[in-house]
Amino acid sequence: MKKTVLILAFLCCVITNSKAQVVGVDVGNIAPEIDLPDTKGEKIALSSLRGTLVLIDFWASWCGPCIKEQPLLIKLNNAYPDKLSIYGVSMDTKKPLWTGAIAKGKLPWTNVSDLKYWQSPVVSDYMLQSVPLNFLIDKNGIILAKNIHGQALEAKIKELLEVQ
């Protein structure tokens, strides 16, 4: 009897631990924290956007596909102003290029960068190998989708927000 109870307790612990959420970059994981300065030098934490659907958008001023996707992001930002937050993380190393691209694109959302490019800790935390790269996270910071662009991104956001 004692042995049976111990086995059941062990199995219970294994099952409980295997379902625990972890910080990581796979769908279902808790998105790693990012806390970088914005264009004014003020740090803005990703977690400060909790409570809304968040699109983490890794981009750079020199990245053609990144710039090409910005009109869609502006459209989504305007369509869901109270339900969707965009958190742009620039991989630029020169502040004038970064801020110039924000001004030229008229990007109204939170934009951050530590201007360290591939030496940034965010690169390893998010296993960043190239841009564009994005992560869609729910109001609790859980990754719902990653690296989706264009119509697939628009459809996923619409599906998630119009159900609420």
Rank of each mutant, 00 (worst) to 15 (best):
M1P: 15
M1L: 07
K2F: 08
K3G: 02
V5C: 00
L8H: 05
L8V: 15
A9G: 05
C12V: 09
V14H: 11
V14P: 01
I15N: 07
I15G: 03
T16L: 15
T16V: 12
N17T: 06
A20Q: 13
A20T: 08
A20R: 09
A20S: 07
Q21N: 13
V22R: 15
V22I: 06
V23Y: 14
G28V: 12
G28E: 10
E33T: 03
E33F: 09
I34E: 00
L36P: 05
K40M: 10
G41I: 10
E42F: 06
L46Y: 03
L46H: 09
L46K: 11
R50N: 03
R50T: 00
G51P: 00
G51F: 00
L53W: 07
V54Q: 14
I56V: 15
D57A: 08
F58A: 02
A60F: 05
P65Q: 05
K68D: 02
Q70W: 13
Q70R: 13
L72D: 04
L72N: 15
L73E: 07
L73R: 00
K75E: 13
K83I: 12
K83E: 15
I86Y: 00
S90Y: 01
S90A: 08
D92K: 08
K95Q: 12
K95R: 12
G100T: 06
I102M: 05
I102L: 04
K106R: 13
N111P: 04
S113M: 02
S113V: 01
D114P: 04
K116Y: 00
Y117E: 11
Q119N: 06
P121W: 10
S124G: 05
S124Q: 07
D125R: 14
D125T: 04
Y126I: 10
L128A: 08
Q129T: 07
S130F: 11
N134H: 06
I142Y: 04
A145L: 02
A145E: 14
K146H: 13
A152E: 15
L153W: 12
L153I: 06
A155M: 08
A155H: 11
K156Y: 09
E159W: 10
L160Q: 04
L160H: 07
L161F: 11
E162Y: 11
E162P: 05
V163N: 10
V163K: 12
